[in-house]
Structures are given as structure tokens and as C-alpha cells.
Amino acid sequence: MGNIDVKNLIVEFDIFNADNEVVSKKRVIDDISFSVNEGDFVCIIGKNGSGKSTLAKCLNGLIIPTGGDVLIYGMNTKNEEQLIDIRKNIGMAFQNPDNQIVASIVEEDVAFGMENLGFSPEEMDKRIDESLKILGIQELRFAQTSKISGGQKQKVSLAGILCMKSKILVLDEPTSMIDKNGRLDLLNKVYELNKKEKITVILISHYIEEISFADRVIVMNQGKIILDDTPKNVVLKDELLNNAGIELPYITRMAKELKSFGKKLNGNEFSVEELCQFLK
């Protein structure tokens, strides 16, 4: 049993007509199972509508499964009494940095989760300090949340999760609304958290480039898991990826092209450095 156990998960949404009557059901997640171990960095990719965001919300108990179970440290998200304990262990950052900030001042927002859990002001002060330091945004402590950039807002929400000492971090497309520099910066910080603080990370993304940070990649299409492997192995399955509407990273595509010209390459290289190594 791992940190997270997903067993035969099914999620269906009701489809309503104009009179607000249920006309049909749409299966968003279709019988998937997997588990994640402590300290893993898992990247879940898939195109829009593949069910990845719904999966993320299931992990946190925000959506209760229609069928199957989600167990976080053995606690079932269907059990309402355990929801607070589950959410303490599994922090979540969302896509739109603007819509997840509650307070007008950074430190107040970071403290929000701890306030909900009834921490003392002294303890909160200490933890805010620590978490802002880890993310390198101490200078923003008293800044107004409306005046900071998208990347900084995402870091503020990460700080809020770190404060609660969550052991699992679920990031639901955290980089989709921030620029490229902010994106790399944020992901590097997440990578550090995973390696140094041993936090289990589940990164949901539709940028295939981001799988290079992960130890394991789960590819979803139409509510099903179609691939579950290491990043290096996943990019070798280009046909499956193409069917799922996912384009390979630019460098990998180049490596494959070069390979077809008879160069000695594996065809799963991610970085320019890797590519150059082989070309020498």
C-alpha cells in the first residue's frame, strides 16, 4: 500500500437539459487504478477533457467518486469524518492563481489553512517564516496579493500548503497561466521540495516538457490511463501519445528525426545537453 491508492475509480457527471432534468451521464473517469509511493514525483498528462483535473479533485476529496475508492494513507475520501485529516495530508494548488487566494495580504493567505486547523498565532508565525524561506519569497510576506505576479501567487499558495506540513502535493496545472520563466522557477522549487523535503508530488499538466521533472508519468486519455511508466520510456511510445493528442517535446522530436537519419540516439532525449552528448 502506498501514500495514495486509487482503486477502480469511476466518476460520472450528470448532464442536464434546459429544464434542469438529468438526461444522461458522462463518464469522466473510467475505472482507473494506481498507487503512488512516498517521495514519488508523478506527472499526470493528458489533453483537455481527459479527466486529469477531475482526478486531482478526487484525490483531495473535493469530488466524491461515483464508483471505486481513493485511499490517502488508508483513509477513504468517501468517509466524510476523515476529510479534514485527508486534506491536512494532501495539499492542492489550482490552475488559476487568482482564484485560490483568500486574503489581501500574503501572510494572511498563507495562514488561512492553519487558521482553519486552529493553530496558535506563534506557531503560525514560525511556520509562515519557514515556508516563505523555503520558497524564497520572504520579502513578499507583507505584500498585497493583488499586486504580485502569477508565479508569485502560485508560490504563495504552495507556501500555504507547506505550512500545513502536507506530505503530498497535488498541483493541478499550476503553470498554465504563468509565463515561461515563472514556470521553470516554480517547477524547480517543486522539484526541490520533492527531493529535499521528501514531499510526494503529483503534477498535472498538459505541457509534455514538464515530465522531465518527474520519476513517473501517467498519461490519460478519455478518462483512462493509457501509459504509466518512466518519462524516458513514455516518450518512446509516440504512437500512443499521438492517439491521446499529446505532442512530443521539441528536443525529443528532433532526436527521433536524427535517429531516423542513422545517428546513434535513443530517441527519448529531453534536453539540449543530452542531445549534444550523443552527437559528439
Binding site: L62, E115, N116, F119, P121
Partner: peptide, 27 residues
């Protein structure tokens, strides 16, 4: 309304349950 929906998710995921047992950072 969309923002409100997202914010509700974000607050719930940070253990907000809506009773007055909350503490304050700066009481």
C-alpha cells in the same frame, strides 16, 4: 461565479469547514 466556484474548492482543500473554531494569525 466561476471564480467563486474555484475559490470554494481552494478553500475546502485548505480545510475550511465554516464554523467559528478558526484561530487568527493576528488576533
Amino acid at each position: 461565479f466561476k471564480r467563486a466556484n474555484d475559490l470554494a474548492y481552494a478553500m475546502e482543500s485548505r480545510c475550511y469547514v465554516g464554523d467559528s473554531k478558526r484561530t487568527k494569525l493576528r488576533p
